[in-house]
Design a protein around this nucleic acid. Structure first.
Lengths: 126, 126
DNA sequence: CAGAATCCCATACGATACTG
DNA sequence: CAGTATCGTATGGGATTCTG
């Protein structure tokens, strides 16, 4: 099926052929496409990660935002948190099966953006 | 290739196996995954749209944000703007070929989110 | 090591009014 | 119809400090 038809089918599920404002999908979409949500999900797509690893991989993220992002994604059932009762503490984060589904769609998107970012910004101020 | 390998390959392009902070892709990613960027791109994936159509489809968007989003996406070379010199004014927005590439990856993601949003929010406060 | 708590700010975003 | 201009606000996000 063409991309165009896919969208049409997608939007036909709604009454007026719109993306409704009062819709749960808006919230989930905001979580998933949040500034750090994308990077965290992509980082976890590779393999389970510890807190410290995620901080290094998603370069620039603050502790506050990492905590907040992980909690949101955990609430959404996309990320699984597993704390090991050891000292020093060790906590592993991984994708749930639902999270894997999503990551499978998210990663190619991120890859495309990374691949084309340079030519895009070059065009900007060219 | 597996999703995992895809990410690994993706991140291997960088030195320290991280998503670098000072990277053009961060900016482009923010544009594309912005609150309204996703919906506008998806709306245009179906067919060219006029200003008023976009306002109705991306329900809840303000005029200010529609203008800003369209300008950003146009600067990024993802959206093409074509103004017709008629009265009343008519302006058509469409995806560039680069925009179509991106939309092809974005639409399945949006479709997945819409399909799973209900079960996700149900889990939230279940 | 893996966070929680607090303070603070920039800006993304919304509402309204106006225009060619 | 397709915008621009202005104002106001909510919150996403950063820096710092503290803790089991």
């Amino acid at each position: 099926m063409s991309v165009s038809n896919r969208v049409t089918e997608l939007r036909r599920r709604f009454d007026a052929e719109i993306f409704p404002a009062q819709c749960p999908s808006r919230m989930v979409l905001d979580h998933v496409t949040s500034k750090w949500g994308v990077l965290v999900l992509a980082a976890l797509a590779e393999e389970p990660r510890r807190w410290g690893e995620l901080r290094r991989i998603a370069e620039g993220i603050s502790e506050k935002m990492l905590a907040q992002t992980l909690k949101t994604l955990e609430r959404d059932g996309l990320v699984h948190r597993e704390a090991h009762p050891v000292i020093p503490p060790r906590v592993d984060y991984s994708l749930t099966s639902r999270g894997e589904e999503l990551a499978a769609l998210l990663v190619p998107l991120l890859a495309w953006v990374i691949d084309h970012a340079d030519e895009i910004v070059t065009t900007e101020q060219g």
